[in-house]
C-alpha cells in the first residue's frame, strides 16, 4: 500500500467532517473516544514507554476532572481556562505518584501502591463534599471557550479534537527526542541507562508528571463532556478500562493509544445498535479483548505496522 506520513495530517482533517454524518448521541461517543485517547496516551507514557506497572492513571483522571469542575463551579472560571490548571494538578499528582518508584518500588508492589493512590483519591472526593459534592457528585456548568458556549456535542468535538491533536503531536515529538530515548533505555535496563549517564530518577518523575499532565487534561475534557462528576466515575473499573485500551491498542504506541480508545470505547456502543446482540455486549467486549491479546500481543498497532511501516512508532529521527 503506497502511503506516506501525510496521512497523519489528512486523517484528523477527514475526522472534521464527522459532525455532518453523526447524530448527537454518536457524536457524544466520538467525544468520549477523544477523552480516552488522552487518557491512554498519558497512561502509555508510564506503562508502555517507561515500562513501569503503575496504575495511578485513574487518580490523575479524577484529579484533572475535579480540578476543572471545582475551578468552574467555585471560582466561576470559564472551562477553557481550567484545562491547563487541571493538567498541572494531574502533573503534581504524577510527581507524588512517582515517589514509590523513586524509592525503588517496582512491579506488583508499585502496581498495588498506585492502585491504592487511585482509591485514596476516590475516598477523598467522597470525604470533601464542600469541594467535590461528595457522593452526590459535582455538576459542572456548560463549557465555554472564549465566551463561546459549547452547548452541543458538535461544538465540544471541535475543541476536543484540537486539544487531542496538539497533545498527540507534542507527545510524538517528545518520544522522538532524547527524552523518549531515555525512557526507552530505562524501560530496557535501568542500570544500563544509568551507566549511559541517564539520571533515571529524574526521568521517572518526568514521565509520571507528563503522564499526569496529559491525563489531567483528559479529565478536564471529561468534566466538560459529561457535565456531572461522581466519585464512582473514577473507580477500579476505570483502571481496567484504561489498561484494556493500551493493551489492545499496543503498549508504548501512540497509534495504539488511538486505536485502543476507538475500539474499547466504541464497541459497546456499536453493539447496542444491533437488536439481536443486545444483552451480550459484555461477552463480545471481553471476548474481543482476549482475542486481541492472545493473537496480537503487541496490540492492534503491530497489525497496522505490518500493513504499512509508516504506522510503526519512530523513536529515533533519521
Amino acid at each position: 500500500m503506497k502511503l506516506n506520513r501525510s496521512i497523519f495530517w489528512i486523517l484528523p482533517l477527514l475526522v472534521l467532517a464527522l459532525p455532518l454524518v453523526l447524530n448527537q448521541y454518536l457524536q457524544y461517543v466520538v467525544n468520549l473516544i477523544l477523552v480516552y485517547i488522552l487518557v491512554a496516551v498519558g497512561f502509555n507514557l508510564v506503562v508502555g514507554n517507561l515500562g513501569q506497572l503503575a496504575f495511578s492513571n485513574v487518580a490523575f483522571f479524577g484529579i484533572g476532572a475535579y480540578a476543572s469542575g471545582i475551578l468552574t463551579t467555585q471560582l466561576g472560571m470559564p472551562w477553557w481556562l481550567t484545562v491547563i490548571p487541571a493538567g498541572l494538578c494531574g502533573a503534581l499528582a504524577g510527581c507524588a505518584a512517582s515517589i514509590p518508584a523513586l524509592r525503588g518500588v517496582r512491579l506488583f508492589y508499585l502496581a498495588i501502591m498506585t492502585l491504592a493512590f487511585g482509591e485514596l483519591m476516590r475516598w477523598s472526593y467522597i470525604r470533601t463534599p464542600d469541594l467535590t459534592g461528595g457522593s452526590m457528585g459535582l455538576t459542572v456548568p456548560e463549557p465555554e471557550v472564549f465566551g463561546w458556549m459549547l452547548t452541543t456535542e458538535y461544538h465540544k468535538f471541535y475543541v476536543f479534537l484540537f486539544i487531542v491533536v496538539v497533545v498527540v503531536i507534542a507527545t510524538s515529538r517528545l518520544l522522538e527526542s532524547r527524552i523518549g530515548r531515555a525512557f526507552l533505555a530505562i524501560k530496557n535496563d535501568e542500570n544500563a541507562a544509568a551507566a549511559m549517564g541517564i539520571p533515571t530518577g529524574q526521568y521517572f518523575v518526568l514521565a509520571f508528571a507528563l503522564s499526569g499532565f496529559i491525563v489531567g487534561i483528559g479529565g478536564s475534557m471529561y468534566a466538560a463532556l459529561v457535565g456531572h462528576l461522581s466519585p464512582e466515575d473514577f473507580d477500579l473499573i476505570q483502571v481496567i478500562l484504561h489498561f484494556a485500551i493500551i493493551m489492545v491498542g499496543g503498549l508504548g504506541s501512540l497509534i495504539g493509544s488511538v486505536l485502543g480508545s476507538i475500539l474499547i470505547t466504541a464497541t459497546p456502543e456499536v453493539i447496542r445498535h444491533f437488536e439481536w446482540l443486545v444483552g451480550s455486549e459484555e461477552w463480545i467486549f471481553g471476548g474481543a479483548i482476549i482475542v486481541v491479546i492472545l493473537f496480537l500481543p503487541r496490540g492492534l498497532s503491530s497489525l497496522l505496522a505490518k500493513v504499512n511501516p509508516i504506522f510503526k512508532d519512530r523513536y529515533y529521527r533519521d
Binding site: 530496557n188 535496563d189 551507566a195 549517564g197 523513536y315 529515533y316
Partner: peptide, 27 residues
C-alpha cells in the same frame, strides 16, 4: 568514566543503531 560491564548491559530489544546512539544521549 564509562564502564563496559561483564554482562555488557546492552539494551537487548533495541537495534545496533539504537544502542550506539544511546551511548551519546547525554554527551
Amino acid at each position: 568514566v564509562v564502564q563496559v560491564s561483564q554482562a555488557r548491559d546492552l539494551f537487548s530489544d533495541l537495534t545496533v543503531e539504537e544502542n550506539l546512539k544511546l551511548g551519546s544521549i547525554i554527551k
